[in-house]
Simulated scan of single mutants.
Amino acid sequence: MTAFGYRLRTRPPLVCVEDYRAAARRALPTMVWAYLDGGAEDERTLYGNRTAFTNWSLRQRVLAGHSGADIGVELFGERLDLPVLLSPTGLTGLAHWTGELGAARAAEQAGTRLTLSTASSYSIEEVATGTRHDHWFQLYPWGERAGFMTSMLDRARDSGYRTLVVTVDVPVQGNRVGERRTGMGHPPILTPRRIADAAVRPGWWYGLLRHRRMTMANVTGTRGAAGAVESVAVQQRQIRPDLTWADVAALRDRWEGPFVVKGILDPADAQRAVQIGATGVVVSNHGGRQLNPAVPSLAALPAVVDAVGDRATVLLDGGVRSGSDAVTALALGADAVMVGRPCLYGLAVAGADGVAAVLGILAAEIRQTLTLMGVGSVADLSRDHLIAMN
């Protein structure tokens, strides 16, 4: 029995993120899997996020004499035990009923933090009261500044969230063909075949029906199927294609703590974010779920680091599936990385314990990779530790 109450008895054992991905695929209905794992259109951006790491090899120096690698980082004045944060992911309760609350508790156990999505299955207040530390809050700038956004900021501040992450790469919803083909459109479309596909996964089905964590809890108080439909309607009504930098600057003025802009791929946009007062940026293409084809996050990272890395925290989100991936991003200048899908895989397999297991795997792989490279700390990484393969 593990700390969160699940028995991780699997055959064969799950020893890497890809193992958890395969197990999650078996655990989830097809339409839910398409939502959690798919990307936009032909998924070139999704694929590019992964293959971008193959453009780099890690430099190995032997007999370095390091008995153990330090993998901790400091972000916005807070020390974390590993350079991996949990990305904001919407409707996480579809992967497992424990959702964001379970993931946040697993993050705490690993010594890191969750970024709670506006579209989360657990509310701002539920996660705040159910955890010990101040996790981060991610805001979709939906609706009017004096209405929805102000309400979200006030709720997050009153609940003790200190770091705000504003996602700016969703002026419209990306064309997620795989979701639409399987019925996870707006709204979801259920057919007898799709219901049967869910019914053959009784554990997932039971958790969904009993706990009804299928709604965006921050935008509706209605649970269950009716709440899911209402959530989608609110999202579609509130999404704003006309937002400008002035709108983000107004949010910066309303937030006193660390302020991070997520969805940056161009160094000029990174500079603009810092100019309006952002203390951090996340280099991200929304996991390949928005513009397709967009530049892979890792490919965009060096130019953003060169543009603002001396003035702001730079995080990398997209494609990290192993400790060596994380080390590559850190060597390119990221202060830390964010992971979304890997933790959803763990959640789908075993709830909070699955998330803790995935984070444990990444931590062990980062430490092992550094030791094999002859590097004593993530703080020592630089581009000198990389060899370009193209």
Results as ranks from 00 to 15, higher is better:
residue 3 A to S: 11
residue 4 F to E: 07
residue 6 Y to D: 13
residue 6 Y to V: 14
residue 16 C to R: 08
residue 16 C to I: 02
residue 17 V to W: 00
residue 22 A to Y: 03
residue 22 A to K: 06
residue 25 R to E: 04
residue 27 A to Y: 00
residue 37 D to Q: 07
residue 38 G to Q: 00
residue 50 R to G: 10
residue 52 A to D: 06
residue 55 N to G: 13
residue 55 N to E: 09
residue 58 L to E: 04
residue 62 V to G: 06
residue 63 L to G: 01
residue 63 L to F: 04
residue 64 A to S: 05
residue 70 D to C: 11
residue 72 G to I: 07
residue 72 G to H: 08
residue 74 E to Q: 11
residue 77 G to H: 11
residue 78 E to M: 15
residue 78 E to N: 14
residue 82 L to K: 06
residue 88 P to R: 05
residue 89 T to S: 14
residue 98 T to G: 07
residue 102 G to L: 08
residue 108 E to M: 12
residue 108 E to H: 14
residue 112 T to D: 07
residue 113 R to C: 09
residue 116 L to W: 10
residue 119 A to G: 09
residue 122 Y to L: 04
residue 123 S to E: 03
residue 123 S to H: 03
residue 127 V to F: 05
residue 128 A to H: 02
residue 128 A to K: 03
residue 130 G to E: 01
residue 132 R to Q: 12
residue 134 D to L: 13
residue 137 F to M: 07
residue 139 L to Y: 05
residue 140 Y to V: 06
residue 141 P to R: 07
residue 154 D to P: 07
residue 155 R to Q: 12
residue 156 A to R: 02
residue 156 A to N: 03
residue 177 V to T: 15
residue 183 G to I: 08
residue 184 M to L: 15
residue 184 M to E: 02
residue 187 P to Y: 12
residue 188 P to R: 10
residue 191 T to M: 09
residue 192 P to V: 07
residue 192 P to Q: 10
residue 194 R to H: 11
residue 196 A to V: 15
residue 196 A to W: 15
residue 205 W to Y: 14
residue 206 Y to L: 14
residue 208 L to A: 14
residue 208 L to I: 14
residue 209 L to E: 08
residue 209 L to N: 11
residue 210 R to S: 10
residue 214 M to D: 10
residue 215 T to W: 08
residue 216 M to D: 12
residue 227 G to E: 06
residue 229 V to P: 08
residue 230 E to P: 05
residue 234 V to D: 11
residue 235 Q to T: 12
residue 235 Q to G: 13
residue 239 I to V: 15
residue 239 I to F: 11
residue 242 D to A: 15
residue 242 D to P: 10
residue 244 T to Q: 11
residue 245 W to D: 09
residue 248 V to M: 13
residue 249 A to V: 13
residue 254 R to F: 12
residue 257 G to C: 01
residue 260 V to E: 00
residue 261 V to I: 12
residue 264 I to L: 02
residue 270 A to G: 02
residue 271 Q to T: 10
residue 273 A to L: 04
residue 275 Q to H: 13
residue 276 I to W: 05
residue 281 V to R: 01
residue 282 V to W: 03
residue 282 V to L: 06
residue 287 G to V: 06
residue 290 Q to M: 13
residue 291 L to A: 15
residue 292 N to E: 15
residue 293 P to Q: 13
residue 298 L to N: 05
residue 300 A to W: 11
residue 303 A to S: 15
residue 304 V to M: 08
residue 306 D to E: 14
residue 307 A to W: 12
residue 313 T to A: 09
residue 316 L to V: 08
residue 322 S to T: 03
residue 333 G to D: 05
residue 333 G to C: 09
residue 335 D to S: 14
residue 345 Y to R: 08
residue 350 A to P: 05
residue 356 A to N: 03
residue 362 L to M: 08
residue 362 L to S: 07
residue 364 A to Q: 02
residue 369 T to S: 03
residue 370 L to N: 00
residue 376 G to D: 03
residue 379 A to L: 10
residue 384 D to L: 11
residue 384 D to W: 09
residue 387 I to F: 00
